[in-house]
Design a protein around this nucleic acid. Structure first.
Lengths: 315, 315
DNA sequence: CTGAAAGCGCTAACAT
DNA sequence: ATGTTAGCGCTTTCAG
């Protein structure tokens, strides 16, 4: 197999010189350079990046930890990461956890083994304390508030967003407001914030007004079957995603029920089609910024703005 | 920095023995094993995967080439790849091309440099002939028909699918049938097949009945503005994606126009919500199978079935 | 401008 | 059961 030694031999020079032309280093005569280039072409040679990475000590590879693929929330962040990474010549590896802490931990270990230079957590299953312990092996960026822990983060002020939404609903006179979340409040910071904001604004406990484990449109239908049970009469439902909201919409339509006021999340195309209000967390920009932090290695915490896209339901 | 030598030194044994316990090889006494394990823990040591990959000659890393992220077509394939790859301990790297042949080629080169063990092309920008030339550096799997070229592939019989759709429309008496595609027929095999099927079934040229460069819901709206121009009166539109179909739906709704019969693609949640017929190409399974082929290295061409999900428009 | 040689950290023959 | 040693393919001092 062709390696740098072979190239050196065939072009009558040392591996050092070959390495120099490979890396565009100066101090090599034009003549030798051409000869080497010719041999490289003839041999169809390409430097082994593993050997190169080994000696250089960096992989130019960053990992994005996601619970699962096929979820617009993560996809949007990923797309931001990829775009920026591409510009800087970094490769990005997708790391699915299925929300399992042990699997997530195995990715932290890959930082240690140098397979990955940095990690971006779009969601986390380990505690911040645990995550912090791994930061010495490479930068780990969280896409949520990392509190007092020394973990770089880039996120939006979700508390402010949820509070603003609930306040405006309250002001508009909505009494019966439902909520959907995905992971329970013990596991998910955003669920916790969501619930706290609700209880603070409305002054009542969330229990009875919430449906958990919602992520897909099917989950939205299931949530709807709860919200529309006899006598409940929910007037508005603040969902944790446009697909969940769409599921509720679909259920109401199929059962010829009055559509409640729906609030989605993520500003996906479907919220435009069905014309419901949604909050855009600018996830792509968050992904892009997370990448910047990941490579710079700086200990920064950035807060991004969110936008509430107000839409009037049709008919 | 901690390396295997250091571990060997501190546990009074050779690097070989350490390597043995690291790789769970037999022939090492329980006592030494425990001592080594203790030193590893104490040193917080983890083997360098770059060194390991170098000596082993494989990266357990496979790349998925995509034009861009944020497109459900590719996302579904990716999710299938990731799922299978995870089970087998492979890492998946996303490689965006933005449909540029040169960028795509640079990924082929990474096969040569051993950064990637195999490549899965969800879409291609280089010719099959060109791609075939790179297969000697690692397996390259195409997610479309690779004809007589020696390139493994896993795809669906699109011609059959399109023909079936157009035939059924014709049989049902639809006269004015529109079509949307994304990349032009010169660049995209599936666009070409789509058009050929149309012209064969209806016996008329596609020109005037087609809108190109459609990918998003916004593109769908633009397509609609063409299909609904005065006097055109398209009765059915076969789109190249559920989002495009949704854009047409939205346009018609916003302009209080009669909804044409819409046929989507991909069977996304939105097609269920809006209740239009769609063809499911089982992309996730395709991704999963593509991964299997990628690691096995076998020269196989698999054809997967598609499903037409028939739905009746509401009202 | 050029090259010899010393690693990078690991695995695997090949002894012992 | 354990250790010696020769690489894997490359970059980079350092000397000339």
């Amino acid at each position: 197999m062709a390696n740098i030694k072979e190239v050196a031999r065939l072009s009558n020079c040392s591996v050092t010189t070959v390495s120099r032309v490979l890396n565009n280093h100066p101090h090599v005569s034009e003549e030798k350079k051409q000869r080497i280039l010719a041999v490289i072409k003839q041999l169809d040679y390409a430097p082994n990046s593993q050997a190169r990475d080994l000696v250089l000590g960096a992989s130019k590879n960053i990992g994005v930890v996601i619970p699962n693929v096929n979820h617009s929330y993560f996809e949007k962040i990923i797309s931001g990461v990829i775009e920026s990474a591409f510009e800087k010549g970094y490769a990005v590896t997708l790391l699915p956890t299925n929300y399992e802490a042990e699997i997530e931990k195995s990715y932290f270990e890959q930082l240690k083994t140098k397979r990955l230079d940095a990690l971006i957590l779009t969601s986390k299953s380990n505690s911040l304390a645990e995550i912090e312990r791994y930061t010495k092996y490479g930068s780990i960026i969280c896409c949520e508030d990392t509190q007092h822990y020394k973990i770089p983060s880039v996120c939006v002020n979700r508390r402010k967003a949820y509070t603003e939404i609930f306040e405006s609903l309250k002001t508009a006179g909505y009494k019966r407001v439902g909520v959907t979340i995905n992971r329970s409040e013990e596991l998910s910071a955003s669920s916790k914030i969501n619930i706290e904001s609700y209880e603070q604004v409305f002054g009542i406990p969330i229990e009875g007004n919430i449906v958990r484990n919602c992520s897909t449109m099917e989950d939205g239908k299931r949530a709807a079957s709860y919200f529309f049970e006899d006598g409940k009469e929910f007037e508005a439902i603040v969902t944790n995603g446009d697909y969940v909201a769409s599921g509720i919409y679909k259920y109401a339509k199929d059962h010829h029920l009055k559509q409640p006021l729906l609030i989605g999340q993520e500003n996906l195309a479907i919220s435009d089609v069905l014309s419901f209000t949604t909050v855009d967390f600018h996830l792509k920009e968050i992904g892009s910024e997370a990448f910047q932090l990941a490579v710079s290695g700086e200990m920064a915490k950035k807060v991004f703005p969110y936008s509430i896209i107000k839409r009037l339901a049709e008919e």
